[in-house]
Structure formats: structure tokens, C-alpha cells
Computed example of a mutant assay.
Amino acid sequence: MSGETERRLAELGVTLPTPTAPAANYVPVVKSGNQLFVSGQLPMGADGLTCKGKVGADVSIEDAREAAKLCAINILAQAKAALGGDLGKLVRIVKLTGFVNSVPDFGDQPKIINGASDFLVDVLGDRGRHARSAVSAGALPFNAAVEVEAIIEVAG
């Protein structure tokens, strides 16, 4: 399945980046049994944080949705690194938790986190379907608009 996943990423024009190092005292991924717990990923691109500010004031739904997709790309990059480069060991995305840095009366968090969910299903098919929470946050690290973490089932 690694080849299948890599082919699909290539078809979508996505190259997984080299994962970024943690910004504090934590590890980016913990493997426990047959699960990977991927720490919250920010929308970090080649030039750093791509989407800053509050959704509903500074950031549009469309831009935040793209930021959530970038978080999902970074989740896959972290998973690939944790799996020794073999995305074929990824059995399925079990759960995503998405945080949206939004104004108090903003209620469209699911629309934002759909950027991550839709991307993972597009790349992984049924292996990308997952349980999910999409919640508002009063603030996120570095004033990021979005942060997404994941639980992933892996083979042996």
C-alpha cells in the first residue's frame, strides 16, 4: 500500500515535507501498540507558518480549510517518518482532533477541519475515514489559525 499511497500523493501534486522538529518539550509521534499518536500539527509550509490569525476575523473559511489540509499533509509526513518511510504500514486514520483559532461566535469549525478530513480520504480512500472532533480555540501556538492531531492505526 505504500506505493499506492505515494502514487496518489503524486497524482495530487503533493510531496510530503521533512517533518518539523517539536517547538517544545514533547515528541512529534508516540507509537503505542499498533497506534501512532501524532502531536498537533500546524499549517507549516516550506516558508514557515502559512496561516495566522482568527478565523471569522483575520482568516477566511477557505484559507483556514487549506491550512487544515496542510496540517493533514504534515500528519502524513510525521507518520511516514515514524514508520521508517513506509506508508504501507498505515492501516487507517482512526481519529482527528482539529482546533480552530476562531472568534467567539464562530460556529463553522467542521467546515474548516473538512480540509484535513477530505484530503486524507482523497489520499487513503476508506483507510482515511475517521472519527473526528472539530473545536474552537481561543488561541493556538504562534497564532496559527488551525492545528490538527491524529491517532493512526498501523501494522505490526
Rank of each mutant, 00 (worst) to 15 (best):
A57M: 01
I151G: 12
D122Q: 15
N74Y: 01
G85R: 06
A79K: 02
Y26F: 13
G115Q: 03
G56A: 02
P110K: 05
A82I: 09
S32T: 11
E6I: 01
E4D: 14
R65E: 08
V121H: 06
V100E: 11
N114I: 04
L124R: 03
T97M: 08
V29D: 08
V154F: 14
K95C: 07
G3C: 11
I75M: 13
L42I: 05
P19V: 05
A145W: 01
G56V: 00
E11D: 13
A68Y: 00
A21S: 14
A68Q: 08
S39V: 04
T18G: 08
A145K: 03
A79D: 00
G115W: 00
D58Q: 10
T20D: 12
F37L: 14
F142W: 08
A131C: 06
V103E: 14
T20L: 12
M44D: 01
A131V: 11
K80V: 05
I61Y: 02
G56M: 00
F37D: 04
S39G: 11
G84I: 09
L12E: 11
N25I: 08
L96Q: 04
G84T: 09
F99C: 11
G33Y: 06
E62V: 08
D126P: 03
K111N: 10
I113F: 04
A81N: 10
V148T: 05
L120S: 07
F142S: 12
A68S: 15
S133W: 06
F142T: 10
A139S: 15
D86Y: 04
T5C: 07
I112T: 02
A81F: 04
Y26V: 09
V55R: 13
A150T: 13
G98Y: 03
P19F: 01
E149K: 10
C71T: 03
A82C: 09
L140K: 07
L124W: 06
E62A: 12
S102M: 03
